[in-house]
């Protein structure tokens, strides 16, 4: 449990979006993010749209080359300039995307979809072995064997996502990135998929990086939660502590905006922080603390000086002038 499996160190991901007045304009999608993930953890990355959660996932999986910073997986650096990633590394890191409708090829059968990673990573020796493995994978996600011959178009959204999960499991990875795996699905189906993911994690000793915008879902599955706002981590803490005593004003605002279904949950919300304002465009990040325009507790200092990440407890860090002042 103690071993660090993935270390994201000062990751920066800027995107060039053209020129304005002779200067190159960048979108700072991820700006100096550091997260350590230990073996067996479920890390929840939470944030609103445009906060950079998916960008972090894509940088880790290798779809983007980071502008700056390091991603270290199992002691090895993932992005070395000019060098391709080793096949073994790709095998250990897998991803499940948000919309199973577009992440599965609708012209292939489920069997073909599940066989591809087996072929690429040369996991099975021959055809018969591959078919056996596909059957095993379907059993793992509790789908009947005959689904092999169906195409993604003929099965439901929840089942499609199960296939996507089976595909990620095909290479026996150590680490899976789940990019909003249930946000396109109904709650009754979401519950089933989440329970399956938790079961698989236990069985195979997996580590998850779980991306979502749903805080109540996070409460139930994550061991550690990181809140992102405009490409920066605002607060990071173990899940239980995170919900017991949130510190950052943005976290408080988020938690109090969630519509809940019982009085008991209503009690858990921090003193109602009225949600105001909108997320600024990541092209034009406000100076100082990027949250100060929406913050109810802003001080003079917040307008000019960007706060730095500061630990307030052993595992609990906050990036806010106010919270640090109160220590």
């Amino acid at each position: 449990m103690e071993e660090t499996i993935l270390r994201i160190k000062n990751l920066k991901q800027y995107f060039n979006i053209g020129n304005k007045h002779g200067k190159t304009v960048y979108v700072k999608a991820v700006d100096d993010v550091s997260i350590d993930i230990k073996q067996g953890e479920v890390i929840g990355l939470v944030g609103e749209s445009g906060s950079g959660k998916s960008t972090i996932a894509y940088s880790v999986i290798g779809m983007y080359e980071p502008t700056d910073g390091k991603i270290i997986f199992n002691g090895q650096e993932l992005n070395v300039k000019g060098k391709k990633r080793a096949l073994q590394m790709k095998k250990d890191l897998q991803i499940v995307f948000q919309d199973p409708g577009s992440s599965l090829n609708s012209y292939q059968t489920i069997k073909e979809i599940l066989e591809l990673p087996l072929k690429v990573h040369k996991i099975c020796k021959n055809k018969g072995e591959r078919e056996q493995r596909v059957k095993e994978l379907l059993e793992m996600v509790e789908l009947p064997e005959n689904y092999m011959f169906k195409s993604p178009g003929s099965i439901g959204g929840g089942e499609k996502q199960m296939v996507a999960i089976a595909r990620a499991l095909a290479t026996e990875p150590k680490f899976i990135i789940l990019d909003e795996p249930t946000s396109a699905l109904d709650v009754s189906i979401q519950a089933k998929i989440i329970n399956m993911l938790l079961k698989l994690r236990k069985e195979k000793n997996l580590t998850y990086l779980f991306i979502t915008h749903d805080l109540s879902l996070m409460r139930n599955i994550a061991t550690k939660v990181a809140i992102l706002y405009l490409g920066k981590v605002a607060e990071i803490a173990p899940a239980e502590e995170f919900f017991r005593k949130p510190e950052h004003p943005y976290t408080k605002m988020l938690i109090s905006s969630i519509p809940v279904i019982s009085e008991e949950e209503e009690q858990l919300k921090p003193d109602k922080v009225e949600s105001t304002g909108e997320i600024p465009s990541p092209v034009n990040v406000p100076p100082g603390c990027s949250f100060h325009l929406r913050c109810a507790y802003r001080m003079e200092r917040c307008k000019t000086e960007d706060p730095v990440m500061h630990p307030i407890d052993k595992n609990h860090s906050v990036r806010c002038h106010l919270c640090i002042n109160m220590l």
Partner: peptide, 22 residues
């Protein structure tokens, strides 16, 4: 009932099984 049980709670305590089928 199934729908209510499937909603993740802010209070924690895991998620119920959901509703089977579609």
């Amino acid at each position: 009932k199934g729908l209510m049980e499937a909603v993740p709670r802010l209070a924690g305590g895991g998620i119920q099984s959901g509703i089977y089928g579609s």
